[in-house]
Amino acid sequence: MRTIHSDAIVSAVAEICQEAAFRLPADVRRALEEARGTEKSPLGLSILGQITENADLAERERVPMCQDTGVAVYFVELGNQVHIEGLGLAEALAEGTLQGYTEGYLRMSIVKDPLFERVNSKTNGPPVVHVELVPGDRLRITLAPKGGGSENMSAMAMLKPLVGKEGVADFVVETVRRAGGNACPPIIVGLGLGGNFERAPYLAKKALLRKLGSVHPDPRYAAFERELLEKVNATGVGPQGLGGRTTALAVHIEAAPCHIASLPVAVNLNCHAARHASVEL
């Protein structure tokens, strides 16, 4: 067993909270730059120019690129040979979030109760934590802060298996069209297929973590991702929903086996400020 003290987790998490808010990942930055080369709408181009300038400014001046610094969503890969000493993992992630959001002057955006006490928790917690047990003695933490605009326009459906690819494509395109400018396009579309009712949205969110420009390992899904991206961009929604060719930078799919009677489909939209940061302990 390898022992990791929770203090190390807290300080590492505080650091990645700030890095994620200030620095747009290089793959997203590159995809936006490429979009500037292909966008034909003058207004769309002007907006893409603002977005890349904003990313540069945020990184240089260490200002959050977006005021919605989001729900802190953690994907944790916990080695089965790791023993955490001190605080528990959930507490350490919550404490790191509080420290990072406080030190970085990030916005606390969580209310204590969804219905009865919509009062700011002032900790940006509790965070959303997904833990996967993996072999080995490492602890890898990825933070993907998620803003409300694009999250609110995400959707889930239990489709009939016979609707097939066309049915899935219709649902994806309709979700993107309905989201319009609210999701802050150009977006990244995370598509979770299969699993079950709670698994599909998790897969959709996980799909958003894949590097832009990477190709799905299954050629059938790689082709479907390209087809969906073309369909999404043919809607004309464009940057900020005001018209153009660049509605999405990518469509990423995560698929999983599912029940014979089901075709769970979840579409998690991510705004162009597709923030994430990782640390390995």
Binding site: N54, V63, P64, G149, C271
Partner: peptide
Amino acid sequence: FAATGGAGALIAR
């Protein structure tokens, strides 16, 4: 008016 969503640093300036 629509301002660019996600351009928070640029607008803050």
